[in-house]
Design a protein around this nucleic acid. Structure first.
Lengths: 142, 142
DNA sequence: TAAAATTATATTGCATACAACATAAATTTA
DNA sequence: TAAATTTATGTTGTATGCAATATAATTTTA
C-alpha cells in the first residue's frame, strides 16, 4: 500500500454516518409505493401510528414521540386535519396545549395499513437477530 | 400478558425503520455545530468529500456517489459555486454533461475540516467492532 | 399579586429530498 | 442519415426538517 493510500478519515467511503443517512432515505423511499394508495407520506404514517395507539395526544407529545419539531409537525397536522384523519383543538385545561385526536376516517385507515409492516419486512429482509442487533447499535448512537 | 397486548406490527415501538430514520437525523444534527464554522451543511460536506477526493466529477457521478437526485444536487451545487467552493462547466466532449471541479477555496477548506471526523467519532462513540457490524447490517438493508 | 420566567405552539426562513416533467445533446436504429 | 431512443442535466411542485423567533397562556418568584 502506498503512503498516500493510508486511511483518510475525510473519504466518503470511510464514513459511518453516510451509510446510515443513505439507508434511512432508502427505507423511507421503499415505503412510498405502499403508502401512496393510502394517501400518506412516511412522516404522516408514523404520526398515524401514534394516533392509532393513543387516539388523542398533545402536539408536544407527538413531537416527542416522533422526534420531530413543531415546525415540521404543525403544518403536517393541518394537512392531516384537512384530509379528515385527525382533529385539532385547544385543551380546556391548558389553553397553550393543542390536542390532536383521531377521527373515524383516521381509524378506518388502520385496516388499510395493516398489510404494510409485513410487506416492508419482506422488502427489507433482515433476520430477527439482525434486526435486534441493528436496534441495539442504533440505540448506542443516540 | 393480556390478549390485547399481543405484538402489534403497527405500533411505533415495534418498527425497525423508525429508529433508523431517527438515528440518521440525529447524526446529521450532531454534525451541525462542527460544520457551521465552515459554512457547510451536512449534504454540502459529503459533496465536498467527493470533491476533495476526485477534484473533478460530473453531476451524474456526484448524484450516484451521494445517492442524491439532480433535483437536490443542481441547486446545491449552484450555491456551492456561488460560495466559491466549486466550479461548474459543460464538458467539451459531451455537451450534455456538466463537470464540477474543486477550486482553491474548496481545497483550502479541507484543512479546516480535518478535525471533524475525529470529533464526530468521539460524539458517536461506537467501537470499531460495532461500527463494522453496523455497516454490515446497513448494507444488508440496501 | 405583579413582574419575570417558563411552557406550548405557531411562524418564518433556509436547506434539503425526490417524483414528474422538460430539454438539449448524443447514440442507436431503421 | 433521418427518426427514434437514450442520456445528462435542469426545473417545478410538494413535503419535509429544523433553527430562530414570536406569541399567548401558565407558573414561579420577588
Amino acid at each position: 500500500m502506498a503512503v498516500n493510500d493510508c486511511f483518510d478519515p475525510l473519504k466518503l467511503e470511510n464514513q459511518i454516518c453516510f451509510p446510515l443517512y443513505v439507508a434511512a432515505k432508502e427505507v423511507v423511499k421503499r415505503y412510498r409505493p405502499l403508502l401512496d394508495p393510502l394517501g400518506l407520506t412516511y412522516t404522516q404514517y408514523i404520526a398515524m401510528m401514534v394516533m392509532w395507539e393513543h387516539k388523542s395526544v398533545t402536539v408536544g407529545k407527538l413531537c416527542e414521540l416522533l422526534c420531530l419539531d413543531t415546525g415540521t409537525l404543525t403544518p403536517m397536522l393541518k394537512k392531516m386535519e384537512a384530509a379528515g384523519l385527525v382533529e385539532r383543538r385547544r385543551s380546556k385545561d391548558d389553553e397553550r396545549s393543542v390536542i390532536v385526536s383521531i377521527t373515524e376516517t383516521g381509524e378506518a385507515l388502520r385496516a388499510k395499513a395493516s398489510e404494510i409492516p409485513a410487506r416492508m419486512a419482506q422488502c427489507v429482509s433482515l433476520s430477527t437477530e439482525d434486526a435486534v442487533k441493528l436496534l441495539e447499535l442504533l440505540n448506542k448512537i443516540r
